[in-house]
Design a protein around this nucleic acid. Structure first.
Lengths: 189, 189, 189, 189
DNA sequence: TATGAATGAGAATTCATTCAT
DNA sequence: TATGAATGAATTCTCATTCAT
């Protein structure tokens, strides 16, 4: 009998363990040897689970594309008012800022490795899943769901590139205030 | 008599010619040989102008950090109302979307090559120059200048990663509407 | 009770199943995993039958060295005239051209893995077995038995390397005509 | 000014220096590092002259395909009789037996790397060049030119695979005797 | 100054073989 | 016995950088 290994579970474990490093240092600056060593396996084993380096990126992206927003959803019940719902998401993103940074960085790598052309299925799926998911769970109309997403990605990027520039909380609160004012004005509650 | 070459002018020319390629393909996926060939010089010559590959990234970043916003400023005179000022910037960014994409991409490379630690002077300078520049020229209070910057960077990123997701114009207009509504409400004109 | 397996019979079966692939693709371009898969066993099992990859080559060569010439011999009886005996061999080789190609290819691999030095027993045996076998069964004097062998190996090689160059039948017939003419002249019948 | 190097001349030199090793040990058993070391250059330099390992094989084959038969031709003048012409070729091949072995070995490698399918131009060219060349220079009718080629390739192969089996000279002489007898009989002189 | 040949460390990947189950 | 996951040395190839001319 062979060693019993849950292939998929192991893959997932490897991915999670190295997600942050991979994202922060970047696809090109991370070597297969390093990944293997860091995970405590041989390069051969690594290739047993991931046939190519690119496939790791792919899998990381898949993982990222299914952003776990359960933490935000948790705080929401059927009668949570709109503003609180939005706030719950905002708070959740702030809490997990670093993780969202990783996703953003990974996305850039993914973009560059796919040259605008093929294999954007994951991306479209991610966009759809997340963009609409936010709208749905916050209760915002779709276009505002995307605006929310866009702004917070902008904020993640800004703070990544210019760490000392703005406070997450201040900018988030300001944005929410601005947004709520508008929604009130046009009668969306 | 040796050939008279304006060292700095030549450097700038090289940088501009290869800026887009460098940004889109990424620091790691571009080789010195390619850059040299594409510019029509030998690798040896390239090294005459840039002592290392990293120095090219550095210089590219410097170039990017001094984003030319003259195109936006042009349309602004002393008595241009706030909304039109903001619109001028928004239009300008839309027009130059690809160029702003390049800057965003380059920024990521720069971030990764500097590992959060050293050499963030350029970044801070860029942030300060641009963030405050926008506030100043639009006439927005500083925090809104940054919000503006953040949102538009988010939009640039979103459209880069998910090309078919949202329309630049629609999202930009929506954001401006939301923002203006707030400013009116609190009496900023 | 353990499964009863005829070790040697199984070995032979494995060898025959993979003989052609092994010969055509070459010792180096065939992997143990491929062999195992293609035979429907695990790599572990494969190693149970063949301790090393080289031992497979060895066994393949052994198999090849005992070229089955029964198909040629069948057509020969005690009173078959010389010319017909030779023709029977020639026809047989033509029929099994691909198989003889395999042997030739394998022989080259064997040669290269043994570097002229050790382990040429199999080769000498094969040469003796075959060269003399041909002479004996055709009724040709030994030196002509070898000449026959040499020419047909040349033909096999030529058609392998230059598939569109010559017709097997034409060259074989021509050779036989030339050979027979000589034998008649010197009174060998 | 750059170092002046005659690219093609250097390539040729590298090829000739390593031809025998490459052929005898085989495409797969020779490493780029070894080749480089053996030639006294770095691997980087080797790649400067040959973009891939396969291209070395290709170039080796090209070199081989233009078998230098000037050594045989030298001894032939307008009034050299047929038998002596053939003898000149036979002698030449015997003299250069090892070189012809190399060509045969290389040909097998070439065959295996090209999978019967594409890129057989070199082979067809070689066949045509050599097969017809022999016929032309010996004065033999084409089909006998090929028979000659085939037999001698067979002999080269036989002596490579079974070094102690037959004497080159004896088999060659026997073949020539047989062949000449036939030619006399049918009136070709 | 300008050239591009040369360098060699280091990258991704392969694969015969071993061994825990 | 049979399995196939694990190993890690070895392979091909790349590329920033140097330096003789």
């Amino acid at each position: 009998m062979p060693k019993i290994v849950d292939h998929d579970a192991y893959r997932k474990e490897l991915l999670q363990k190295y997600f942050d490093d991979f994202a922060q240092r970047g696809y090109n600056d991370v070597t297969m040897r390093e990944i293997a060593q860091s995970l405590g396996v041989s390069t051969g084993s690594l290739y047993h689970y991931f046939p190519t380096k690119k496939s790791i990126l792919e899998s990381m992206m898949q993982l990222a594309s299914r952003r776990d927003i359960s933490g935000a959803i948790e705080k929401i019940t059927a009668d949570t008012p709109l503003e609180e719902r939005i706030k719950a998401f905002s708070d959740y993103i702030m809490e997990k800022e670093h993780w969202f940074q990783d996703i953003l960085l990974l996305t850039i790598d993914y973009y560059r490795q796919h040259g605008k052309d093929g294999g954007f299925d994951i991306m479209n799926e991610a966009d759809h899943y997340y963009g609409n998911g936010v709208a749905e769970w916050t209760g915002l109309p779709t276009e505002f769901g995307f605006m929310f997403t866009i702004f917070f990605n902008g904020l993640i990027f800004h703070r990544l590139a210019f760490p000392d520039s703005v406070s997450f909380k201040e900018q988030a609160d300001l944005f929410l205030k601005v947004l709520m004012t508008y929604l009130h004005t046009v009668g969306i509650e």
